[in-house]
């Protein structure tokens, strides 16, 4: 079972690199959907290796698989079609440089998890912390360096998935109510952000966020 766990975490690490170099939005959204599915499988693998699972756990897992792997990507695709944006032109940092930066960040994540007090003794895979940190930093990186509002939403989803990798990988159980609330929050967030993207598109005729800088001191 530990092999499956490592395989999944490795796949998540590779996904970050793919995300950094994806220029077409549809491709990006597909990658986020795959990340959501992998996350669902990860929680199943973790539950298998720890031996404890019940109907509440399965319910949360199936719901999060459906929402993160299906519903949210669908919402994003729908938004993308409505505002007819296909690709991220002129990102602040080029795609090849992004790839290098993400590689460096991943390396940094491995280094950081090697110096923090080890968690391996407590039954968690040694790859969990690097995978989580690397995914979180990829999400933040995407939000900072991409100009389109919709790519920033994608970046936020990646960031959120990174946090969930940590939670599931370290087997921290929040209970049914909190997990459901979490999923509902993320769903509502993407929904509201989608509406905001519509409005930005209508008011500014485009969704480049660098024009959103009229306010400030």
């Amino acid at each position: 079972m530990n092999d499956l766990l490592s395989l999944l975490l490795g796949a998540l690490l590779v996904l970050n690199l793919l995300l950094a170099s994806a220029s077409r939005l549809r491709h990006c959204i597909k990658l986020v959907a795959i990340q959501g599915v992998l996350l669902g499988l990860l929680s199943l693998a973790c539950a298998q290796s720890s031996g404890g699972h019940n109907w509440q756990f399965l319910l949360v897992m199936i719901l999060s698989l459906l929402i993160k792997g299906g519903l949210l990507p669908y919402l994003l695709l729908y938004t993308m079609r409505r505002i007819s944006v296909r690709r991220e032109l002129e990102p602040v940092v080029g795609y090849s440089l992004s790839l290098v930066i993400i590689l460096a960040l991943t390396g940094g994540a491995f280094w950081l998890s090697s110096i923090t007090p080890t968690a391996v003794a407590h039954g968690a895979s040694p790859l969990v912390l690097p995978a989580a940190l690397s995914t979180i930093s990829t999400g933040l990186f995407l939000m900072v360096t991409r100009r389109k509002a919709i790519t920033q939403v994608i970046g936020f989803l990646v960031f959120e998935n990174g946090i969930s990798i940590f939670g599931t990988g370290m087997m921290i159980h929040n209970g049914l109510l909190v997990e459901l609330g979490l999923l509902l929050d993320i769903f509502a967030l993407v929904f509201i952000m989608g509406l905001a993207v519509f409005n930005i598109n209508r008011s500014f005729q485009h969704i480049d966020t660098h024009s959103l800088n009229a306010l400030g001191d």
Partner: peptide, 27 residues
């Protein structure tokens, strides 16, 4: 336009912040 910008910043920055808090709670 101004309120759209303010709302976008609010939504994005606070969500990132609160995401960090979630990571903190898990830690």
């Amino acid at each position: 336009e101004g309120s759209l910008e303010a709302m976008w910043k609010y939504l994005l920055l606070c969500s990132i912040g609160i995401g960090l808090a979630l990571f903190g709670i898990l830690l």
